[in-house]
Design a protein around this nucleic acid. Structure first.
Lengths: 336, 336
DNA sequence: AATCGTAACATTAACGTTTATGTTACATAA
DNA sequence: TTATGTAACATAAACGTTAATGTTACGATT
């Protein structure tokens, strides 16, 4: 585009040395004398040389690129996680590719497969909720360095970064019970995934620990349409009169508040509400919402660090589960 | 990793034809007979062949990759924009690289420069707020297909996707005036960028149109610390008693609500508040917040479409400004 | 029948690196 | 002295594509 592209051949010609020497000098090889290295470095800087990534990748099988595969970018949790990932990648001089699956396992697999031809050095993924597809990943982890975060598959030979879903869910349920709730509805999301099931178990076990019978009727499953969720929640109230709402995913918050508003139920007087959430404005809601907040940024940070650990050690038959703690932030919506 | 890598050489051997024929068949060249193409395609599918991106890129100078450079991923506006970009990219079979500048122009330029060696086919960018650096981009747009969105530099020979900042700002100010406000404070962000200045002008001109004197004292500049902003807003109230707040960036919302809460000012009785924002929970705030909402997803969508227009036409000395409309959503925070 | 055009392939040279394998010159060891 | 080791470079072969150029066979044209 500008004048002739500057590559190592050009540098070699100008310095009257071989291109191999230039390459090794640029890579700071021990084979090259300090004097020659400096000549190369100086000229490279003067001519504003940057190596061609395609050529380098083709030859060395290193791409300096990782991929992040997630359900949705426009989500408080995932955008924070990406932020964490991106920071670690930048420190390592790596590039970050983003793919959105829209909770569609088929698309997830399609994206993943498109990365197996050497486009990336590794993959960070948070799996889709619409299906549980352990088999695919069982093979995949053998083919490419892969780290799961938050939404993981179990018993796979790789790194998994999660949060203490069970414990935080138990604690949150206990908090509702402590506030006097007797009939706590559970708004169920991520049902097919370990994360969702752990949250559900925490809820169930907290009830059991307090000798409260589990009531199937108080479980509401997530639908993709916001209005549908509002309707469902209203129906739940009309039929079963819960005095507490435990929302296991952020997507239920707006429907819950809208339903309460529609039915003139006041939070927390008539019903106490809490939810898993990374909503920064939770404290400004009407009323301020009690949340179980996952350390989204840290999860991304940690996941990326694990991936680079694999990339540096080569041996990616390592397995490790890292569990970070979520925080229960008590606010007005669960005031006693 | 698995068995021998499957490449076109392997396909050629198995089919007993030349690698050139395989390559052309895979690319559906007119030179190859239908029969041969089918043999190649069938075997390629059978062996699960996917072309090596590095080799293809090295030879053809096409990367099937675009870069998105933005200040921050964990931001409602930008994450929605990315979502729009990613969708268009997927339709075109392109990959998307993400870079965060953290509002730092130096990092922005560093990222951008690292992409000029053929790593991407084009760049989408929303520039940092900490500096106005037209010069750099004046050269850049000649070197690489580039599309600006939302935060643009003016008078550059390329595509720019923006929103009607001036008009929506004017309308929002008019709305506050219509609700009876006499002293409207302006919370100023993006001051160095055309977007921020247009919002400010819209505010000023609306005042002028209503024969209200502009008061420098009612302007508050954004600080990076949330608490600092809270303090500043409280001070603003104590010293100048505004009856309306026009926040030109989303980041002022929480500080504004907190300041009002701290000072026991009730919205909208004591002061009416509105803000530029893509906060999905705006309607659930206490009180529900009137917003000027930018079509973030559409902006990303449109920006990506423009970039692909450039990539397909080759001629990227085209210039075009596309202006999308923001929406003023009136809610309780500006009730009369 | 000789010529030409062209469909359908093959040969081969890139693209810009990295790296395995030479090749020197010179210091050191035997 | 000769052999040996090694520092510091050069040569050349990959990596897996694409594309410019060659080749062949065969039907159409004159």
């Amino acid at each position: 585009m500008a004048s002739d592209q500057v590559n190592i051949k050009r540098l070699a010609q100008e310095l009257n040395i071989s291109i191999a020497t230039v390459s090794k000098a640029l890579n700071d090889s021990y084979e090259i004398s300090a004097k020659t290295k400096n000549r190369v470095w100086d000229l490279a800087k003067a001519l504003n040389y940057t190596p061609n990534p395609a050529a380098s990748n083709l030859r060395s099988h290193k791409t300096k690129t990782i991929a992040v595969i997630i359900p949705d970018v426009a989500n408080n949790f995932f955008s924070l996680a990406i932020k964490g990932i991106e920071e670690v990648a930048r420190i390592h001089g790596y590039h970050v590719l983003i793919y959105q699956t829209h909770e569609d396992t088929e698309m997830e697999i399609s994206f993943t497969n498109s990365l197996l031809n050497g486009r990336v050095d590794g993959i960070l993924t948070s799996v889709s909720s619409n299906e549980y597809n352990n088999d695919y990943y069982r093979d995949l982890v053998k083919k490419v360095p892969l780290v799961f975060f938050d939404r993981v598959y179990e018993s796979l030979q790789t790194f998994k970064i999660t949060t203490d879903d069970y414990e935080s869910s138990f604690a949150a349920t206990q908090h509702l019970l402590d506030c006097g709730c007797k009939k706590i509805a559970f708004l169920f999301g991520l049902e097919k995934l370990p994360a969702g099931r752990a949250r559900f178990s925490g809820y169930q076990d907290a009830l059991k620990a307090n000798e409260i019978d589990f009531d199937e009727q108080l479980i509401l499953h997530y639908e993709n349409l916001e209005e549908q969720n509002v309707d469902n929640i209203e129906q739940l109230f009309q039929q079963h009169h819960p005095d507490g709402i435990f929302s296991s995913i952020e997507e239920f918050i707006i429907p819950t508040y809208l339903a309460c508003r529609n039915m003139s139920l006041s939070i927390p007087q008539d019903v106490k509400v809490l939810s898993f959430s990374n909503l920064s404005s939770a404290k400004l809601l009407n009323p301020a919402l009690t949340t179980i907040t996952q350390p989204a940024f840290d999860i991304g940070h940690e996941a990326a660090k694990c991936l680079f650990k694999i990339l540096n050690n080569k041996g990616f038959d390592d397995e490790q589960n890292i569990v970070l703690k979520s925080t229960l932030i008590k606010r007005t919506s669960t005031n006693c």
